[in-house]
Design a protein around this nucleic acid. Structure first.
Lengths: 327, 327
DNA sequence: TTGTAAGCGTTATCAG
DNA sequence: CTGATAACGCTTACAA
């Protein structure tokens, strides 16, 4: 763990000269440079990054906080952030928020206490107003889910439009009783997708029947309950996100229903029936969010459009045509 | 961004007193404490973590480097590390190494330059000897894959035994021509699993036919090629890891073959046929690795068993019984 | 109980 | 081209 001073002492120069050599400052005599370099090699010198970071004052770490890093959607966001950060000589701190909205802040704060260039956040609660003090020191960039009670950059996707498209697609397959399966309305994505679903029904002249809406479907048990609550009513389903879709699948294996799901997931195309989905672009969400953070670091006074909404696309597979159970 | 000095000036005390108040040092008059606290609140004081970390010298970050954070197996390792770190007031830096072994070192080094308590590493190359200089400053703990050319802590699973069990299971189903599908022999896991596969064949008195072994199956194209190369020979398959298994599935949909796979994966049980697997415990790998790092930090002179091997288990589903194509 | 001085390792400033 | 000095924000050791 040699320090610059030690290198300097061994080379018979000042610490500053070592610093110059290390940082490729041209104002060093070749002879001096060489001597210092050889000693650096000999003593295996590596600068103390804590000291450098502290000294420079420029944050070199981006934080990523998502509900669950094991969810491939969020993992892809994290990977994109990390790649982008790496391209700018920055590192990435990752945390999984879990599923308890009341703990969101507690999990975030230790991360926010660190000097971060910014935090890419996919929140699990619907209200980040208690984070406003933090937001003034560390820029937040929301991804996937819009902020609540806080003005911050956000990169989201067209939840309303995607849900509208999915629902309309089922309507076009002749369905008039389409169920909505989701997790929590507190999530802005779920709320928007429900709006899109309802708008599609209205547009099609279909009634918006509350009995067709089942929430709490993020676990297998919840999804089974949700399905049980509506499967006598519905001839087809719109699933509001990939977690719900995957939780639904075991129950749907017993009780097949045509399905269009918001959010692609691994193996969706290999299931029987393969699952028709609305695809998002998590890579773009992560990349854009990280770029925004870096841009804000470089140009603190620049102004940006606060909210960017990415398009989504319907990928039609087989599940939208699956034979409904006879009733 | 108020500093301690600014709080001190505003409160009419010295920086040290502010420090004491902040750190709950009892040697402060209640009146002084209160005055300082109110000013801290007013100025929204948050300590500069870079300064604190630098000053303390104690690293408070654990690094995680895995092939791909989007792979749920590695994501689960990362999540376990992060949880464990969080329980000890530490944070977690994550990086995805990608699939080019020659870039392993280049991706790792920026992470190693930071003062880390340790790095949890699932390497993509078979030789980490070029990292030995780094290993003396930052403890490495290998997970899933054993180190090559480097002595370091490692938490792996019983690759040999799992492959032996899987292959034997297929033998017990009456198969005498069992194919091995894997990615790269440079990976210690693949090499060990191949050994286990061979041992099982030998044990069963079956010939170890090189024509039954196909590598490079980490992508769909590679897996299709691998399958094409052996499917005329084999009546059943052992897949060496989850990435290969998922890559194989599309080709197997065309060309069904009984299968046992090393590594569970999401939805494995919902495919038709559901996939029989050898399950690992990535959560334990991550947790144990993180605990080792923390332990080494607390007790630098403690001695540990270098290598710990976790057991694996066969989860029998349907794919091991799937009807082989008629031939 | 409170404050002063010094230093963690690096780099900017300015002098030589 | 090189070096002394100071400073980043905080805390430890030692005084007062």
């Amino acid at each position: 763990m040699a320090t610059m001073r030690q290198i300097a002492a061994a080379a018979g120069v000042s610490a500053k000269t070592v610093s110059r050599v290390f940082n490729d400052d041209p104002h060093v005599l070749p002879a001096t440079r060489e001597r210092v370099e050889s000693i650096m090699r000999e003593l295996d010198y590596v600068p103390n990054s804590l000291a450098t970071a502290f000294r420079s004052g420029r944050p070199s770490v981006i934080g990523v906080a998502v509900p669950d890093i094991v969810d491939p959607f969020f993992a892809e966001i994290a990977r994109a952030v990390e790649r982008t950060a790496r391209d700018h000589d920055m590192s990435t701190l990752v945390t999984s928020l879990g599923d308890d909205p009341d703990r969101e802040r507690a999990v975030l704060e230790p991360m926010l206490r660190r000097q971060l260039a910014g935090v890419v956040l996919a929140p699990i609660s619907d209200d980040q107003s208690s984070l406003s003090a933090w937001a003034s020191r560390t820029p937040f960039v929301f991804v996937d889910r819009a902020p609540g009670g806080l003005a911050a950059d956000a990169f989201t996707q067209d939840d309303f439009g995607g849900a509208f498209t999915a629902t309309t697609h089922l309507v076009e397959h002749g369905h008039r009783r389409i169920g909505f399966v989701g997790d929590e309305l507190a999530l802005p994505t779920t709320a928007e997708r429900l709006r899109g679903y309802r708008a599609a029904l209205t547009e099609a002249g279909l009634p918006a029947d509350e009995e067709l809406i089942a929430l709490g479907a993020a676990t297998r048990e919840g999804a089974a309950r949700a399905l049980a609550a509506i499967d006598s009513q519905a001839t087809a389903l719109f699933s509001s996100n990939a977690v719900c879709t995957m939780a639904l699948l075991p129950a749907l294996a017993e009780q097949p229903l045509p399905l269009v799901a918001f959010g692609d997931f691994p193996l969706a195309e290999l299931l029987r029936p393969s699952v028709s989905v609305i695809t998002q672009d998590p890579e773009a969400l992560g990349r854009l969010a990280a770029e925004r953070i870096i841009d804000r670091l470089d140009r603190p006074d620049a102004r940006y459009r606060r909210s960017t909404v990415l398009p989504v696309h319907l990928v039609e597979r087989d599940s939208c045509r699956a034979a409904p159970a006879v009733r």
